[in-house]
Write a protein that binds this DNA or RNA. Sequence first.
DNA 1: AGATTGGTTAGCCTAGTTGCTAACTGCCTT
DNA 2: AAGGCAGTTAGCAACTAGGCTAACCAATCT
Lengths: 118, 118
Amino acid sequence: MRKCLLLSLMANHLDTFFAAMADPTRRAVIERLTDGPSSVSTLHAPHDMALPTFLRHLKVLEASGLVRSEKKGRVRVVHLEAAPMETAEAWLRQQRHMWKKRLDRLGALAERLERDRA
Amino acid sequence: MRKCLLLSLMANHLDTFFAAMADPTRRAVIERLTDGPSSVSTLHAPHDMALPTFLRHLKVLEASGLVRSEKKGRVRVVHLEAAPMETAEAWLRQQRHMWKKRLDRLGALAERLERDRA
DNA sequence: AGATTGGTTAGCCTAGTTGCTAACTGCCTT
DNA sequence: AAGGCAGTTAGCAACTAGGCTAACCAATCT
């Protein structure tokens, strides 16, 4: 029961995380933030879109937990939060691991058959 | 120029990959497929939705390259394709790496300041 | 105080996604 | 050949996503 709750929470996180990453603008923001916090308008500058539109991308990132921000005076400073990325990476690694394990079992089986035939 | 083309191709792959992963039904299918290929209706069984709806999820997965399928007689067999997952995992790892490197630089700087103050 | 800068809210539009049902094709079994 | 099973196509409704403009705070600069 406990585990089920945990899993569904994580599922929800994966939902918002992957959805957040599915947009090139948002991935570019993430890349940009890996070398340090930055203000909204600085982040906005290289992107050819209206500021309100861009702001909504930031909100999506923030809602997914990938990014946090606080306001100092009239400028809002945004910074990266690595934890959700680790969660997702772990999930992917897990899937690949399962997949590889199965292929190994399959390989072993093939080898056994080969040996038996000889 | 060549690199730019490559990057934009990858960007496009990341788009479709992350979008594909943003849905719990589709992630469940991926998990299921890690332990072997399976037919459409077998994959469908545990999901409480109409078959045509489910089929579209499969199409999304196939379009993103995560999955391939071929038809044998009247049944279509679906199997996992690990490469796109590796690409995405690599991208995430890269971002985390950049982030960590920056934190290290920051740590070193702090340490230097500390030393100077002493 | 008034103008400027940085961000925010509200509202609109278009395109795409996710669910459904109904009807159809094409292979297999009897 | 008839029936059923596996999948597919077409078309509809509800909702979300991503873009825009216009108008609006609130902090700073002159």
